[in-house]
Design a protein around this nucleic acid. Sequence first.
RNA 1: GCCCCGUUCGUCUAGUGGUCCAGGACACCGGCCUUUCACGCCGGCAGCACGGGUUCGAAUCCCGUACGGGGUACCA
Length: 502
Amino acid sequence: MSVRVRFAPSPTGSLHLGSARTALYNWLAARAAGPEGTFILRIEDTDRERSTPEHVDAALRIFRWLGLDWDEGPGVGGAHGPYFQGERASRYAAHARELLEAGHAYECYCTAEELATRREGHAASDRAWTYDGRCRDLSDAEREERRAAGTPASIRFRVPTGRSVTFQDLINGESSFESDLLGDFIIVRSSGDAVYNFACAVDDALMEVTHVIRGVDHLSNTPRQVLLLEAMGRPVPTYAHVPMILGPDGRKLSKRHGAASVEELDRAGYLPVGICNAVALLGWNRDDDTTVMSMEEMVEAFDPARVNKAAAAIDYRKLDWINGQHLRALEPAAFEAAWQAWADRWLDPQDPRNAGAASVDAATVRILVQEKVARFGEVPGLLAFLASDAAIAPEAWEKLDAVEPLPRVLAAASEVVTACADQDRWSPEAIEEGIRALVGSLEVKPRELFNPIRLAITGQRVSPGLFESAWALGAGTVRDRLEHVRTESMDRRGAASGSTDR
RNA sequence: GCCCCGUUCGUCUAGUGGUCCAGGACACCGGCCUUUCACGCCGGCAGCACGGGUUCGAAUCCCGUACGGGGUACCA
């Protein structure tokens, strides 16, 4: 079955997580239909202020980055273009004219001010205010008179009275609304611009959209659009109104909650597939025990009819976990490429906090952190010790001071390092072999050996594995740090015992 | 106000009248592994919003209440 879906963002510069999920669901629905599926990207750039070319570019870039490629739309064209609403004005005008001629719409001469006054005068008691129909049944002579007076007219849709408008919604089931509650609504402003509901109906009709997957905030627009489609003699698509995404506190998701947009998650170092996976699970699941899925697996399993009705609160900790799973599953080359791409965009090498991470290549980063982090944003902190001027953290000193055999452990480690380097065996494995042998020869407990060495060379309470860290640092630096801590610790011990004498 | 929608562990969810004294995942707690952290493994805590029905039987069906949300524009 042919599936034509569309996502219609207004390019405001950032993609909200809720929108990202809606876009993803559309994309999944299209891809699930195989060659019969078409994902259309339509840009709602009617807001001249915000719809700058830069914002449009940014929007397209974020879709590409997420992996949501489109079959029709900006840059790829298609048989139903143009795909910018700003370029479709003539189509809206033509359809408005047809509706006017067929009697499905009429000119309205009420001004915005008049309408506001009448609305205020309406008793707020029972029914919601709807257009009072003042211009609905004007005679030709009366219309002529108004026109002569020069009042710019808007165009209203003549909503049929006394019927219920019913449509199919995959998520909410069959939905229906009373047409009498709608009121004749405006489809073309007195300025001549099409109003959203009308533009949307025309576009969906002309683009032959079969399934409209969008946020629930559009649910109450649907009866209007259905009525318009019917009046235009066009088929009514199947709808799927997806629920909202809430912040961790259960309130509407906003910047206040941290990352509310895809850009922010990118900056924080999440993978596209991690974001898609996590966001897809907010309201949908494959079965009762699948959490981590690739894009392909999601395509295979996605079913809009299985999307929940209830809004879901995002849990960033679960996002972290899911992303970590994807990160760990990456092949070496893929991990390195993803890291490099992220670092190129977000890692400012001038920032001293990034000095460690910026000093090594992608392969080294991979060896050091792939098993440890949930997202790339954690890497600079974890690799800070690689900076040439990295210092020992106070907490690290506290632990070092507590290690009784510290001097001989460090001295022995230093010898191992020298030996490895001299024999041209500078690898994590060789270092590990040499250090482990010390447990026996020094007759110390493993934790009395490994931990102090790790603390001495990284200076961090939390760090990558000891052997990999040493390897990445290089023999010279490791020896220097070992020696530095050894002498320093003796001074500290001397000072400490001196003070107890007093 | 009016229209519409929602409500299962802290969070995401499975569940469509008996197989549910409600299953999984994240988080949390405990243990194991262990060079820190993380990973991994094992175990634990914790939930059907409330009140009425219907039924031999209800998380599942109906009604109501509470709470939350969306809409109610010459916004999108």
